[in-house]
């Protein structure tokens, strides 16, 4: 089975649509959304509606911190995120708010675990920004591959039979064999707000038969999204971020 894993869509309609169009070309049987469907971006209604539609068609969706913050304000969020959230909240329908706040924290398919931030204490929204920070995720579960988002920077970390963790370079666009002698944690890059220096939308495809993971990048029309952000009066830093991907 081929699984497309999308995360951190952040109300970026153009990026979300571009990635879904790319997914369509890749013979994918299952879609998993790792949360943060809304927040930051100018199109929360459309993105949320599209996610609900995908969920209705069998996609698995887990909750991200921005999704949770729609119903329950999160005081730990930075000022930009909070301003964007205050802008987002009144735009969502009651049905959409119920969908976002009712999402589960994790999903599993076979020996794959899907979570927004980290496998350990997922509700604490911990950032996996290094191999060391992935260690607790490996400790708390038995799953062979853990997929998470939240950081907006793609990362691949392995844990060998002696429980040594190591970050592996990501060959963008080329499949990495996730050999079974190790356990793996993949931080999938953001669809709607990449922060690794490339503005293209990120996602990943896991092929469970070949046991290979591919990190993908898809170009999209950033200019349109940026124009919408500015028209909506959202913080300018969000627009700059989409243009630079950093």
């Amino acid at each position: 089975m081929r699984i497309a894993i999308l995360t951190d869509i952040h109300a970026n309609r153009e990026a979300f649509a571009a990635v879904l169009a790319d997914v369509d070309q890749r013979k994918v049987q299952q879609i998993v959304l790792l949360g943060d469907i809304v927040g930051y971006g100018p199109d929360p209604e459309w993105c949320c509606a599209r996610a609900m539609q995908l969920a209705g068609a069998g996609a698995l969706v887990v909750q991200g911190n921005h999704d949770a913050a729609v119903a329950k304000p999160d005081t730990s969020m930075n000022i930009t995120a909070r301003r964007a959230m205050d802008w987002t909240r009144p735009r969502l329908s009651p049905g959409q708010v119920a969908f976002l706040s009712g999402l589960p924290m994790t999903h599993r398919i076979g020996d794959l675990l899907f979570v927004h931030a980290s496998a350990n204490d997922p509700q604490d929204w911990i950032y996996v920004t290094s191999a060391q920070r992935a260690m607790p995720s490996f400790r708390v579960c038995q799953d062979r591959v853990i997929f998470c988002g939240h950081v907006h920077v793609p990362r691949l970390i392995s844990c060998d039979i002696n429980n040594r963790v190591a970050e592996q370079p990501i060959p963008m666009g080329n499949p990495v064999p996730l050999i079974r002698s190790r356990r793996w944690l993949a931080v999938v890059g953001a669809v709607g707000q990449p922060r690794d220096g490339r503005p293209q939308a990120g996602y990943a495809v896991m092929d469970t038969v070949r046991n290979e993971l591919s990190f993908m990048r898809v170009p999209y029309d950033t200019a349109t999204t940026v124009a919408k952000l500015r028209a909506a009066g959202l913080p300018e830093s969000l627009a700059m971020r989409l243009q630079s991907g950093a």
């Binding site: 039979i161 002696n162 064999p177 050999i179 079974r180 002698s181």
Partner: peptide, 28 residues
Amino acid sequence: IVGFEVEQMILPRLTGVHVPRVVGVGDF
């Protein structure tokens, strides 16, 4: 161990007459 892992990563991706065809791999 690492040498074995490296072989497990590389060999299944190779094709053609100049490499042995892989039919199965087992983990630890």
